[in-house]
Each structure stands twice: as structure tokens, then as C-alpha cells.
Simulated scan of single mutants.
Amino acid sequence: MLKFVLKNPTELKMTIALNGLSIRGFSKEIGLSHSFLSQVINGKRNPSAATAKRISTGLQKNIGDFFLVSLVDELPSRGMWNDSSEN
């Protein structure tokens, strides 16, 4: 699973402003709620790959310009580690 974390909130806000938009206006333009975009900017939420792409594409940038992308291993459920021969 990929995890997307905003690198620099100030840079994203400045880029939005330099494109002549407010955060609210930009969120409308790319089809996100203002509250969700604000949570991403404030580090309270991490976007999905599709959302990170919408933000980046909306500003004509690459995802890597704004987001750190890392591979997060999903741990198997607890039951997969249990070996019945040890019980």
C-alpha cells in the first residue's frame, strides 16, 4: 500500500495562491471538500493516491513535487501467525 504525506504545507498553499485561487476555490475546482483539503494541508489526514493526483494535477505539478510517497507493508491479520502445532 502506498502512503502519501504532504511535504511542505506552505509550498502547497503558496502554489494555490500563485494560481490565483483560495484554498476553498481550489478545492471546488478539483472536486474536494474544503474541510478535507484543509485537513491534508494541516497534516491531519493523508490523501489517497487518487486525491494526491487530483491536487497535483490541479496545479500542473507531479505528485512528488508536493507529497512524500512511501510503501507501507500491510501486516497480516493476527490469526495468520498462529501455528496450531505450537498450541
Rank of each mutant, 00 (worst) to 15 (best):
S22R: 08
S35D: 04
T15M: 06
T10L: 15
T15K: 13
I30R: 04
K44F: 02
G25A: 05
N19A: 13
G20F: 06
K7L: 08
L6K: 07
S33R: 12
N19Q: 02
R45C: 11
K7Y: 06
T15E: 14
A17P: 02
T15D: 11
H34Q: 14
S38C: 13
E11G: 00
T10M: 10
L32D: 00
P47C: 02
L21N: 11
N46L: 02
V5R: 15
V5T: 15
R24S: 11
N42W: 07
K13M: 09
K28C: 01
A49D: 14
R45H: 14
N19W: 04
K28L: 03
F36M: 03
T15W: 08
N46V: 09
N42H: 06
P47G: 02
L6S: 05
N46P: 03
F26Q: 12
K28H: 03
L12N: 05
L37E: 10
S27L: 05
S35A: 12
G43P: 03
P47N: 01
G20Y: 01
K13D: 00
F36A: 01
R24W: 11
L32W: 01
V5K: 15
K7T: 07
I16T: 11
G43Q: 07
I23G: 03
K28S: 06
S27Y: 04
T10R: 13
F26W: 03
S33Y: 13
G31P: 01
S48K: 08
S38Y: 14
G20P: 00
F26E: 10
A50E: 15
L21R: 06
S33H: 15
G43R: 11
E11R: 14
T10H: 11
F36C: 04
F26D: 10
K13Q: 13
S35Y: 11
N46E: 12
R45D: 06
K28M: 04
M14C: 01
T10W: 14
I23N: 04
A17R: 08
L18C: 03
L18I: 05
L21C: 09
G43A: 06
S35F: 12
G31E: 10
H34W: 09
S33T: 15
V5W: 08
S48W: 09
A17D: 02
T10P: 01
E29R: 15
V40N: 12
L21D: 12
H34T: 12
L12S: 06
A50P: 00
A17K: 12
G25T: 04
G43C: 07
T15C: 08
I41V: 05
S38K: 11
N19D: 08
H34G: 11
E11L: 14
V5Y: 10
V5L: 11
L37Q: 08
N8C: 07
I23M: 03
S38F: 09
V40D: 10
I23T: 04
Q39Y: 15
N19T: 06
R45Y: 15
L37H: 05
L32G: 02
S27W: 05
K44V: 15
V5A: 11
L18K: 15
M14Y: 08
A50N: 11
G20I: 06
S27V: 08
G25E: 09
G25M: 04
Q39H: 13
A50I: 10
S35T: 13
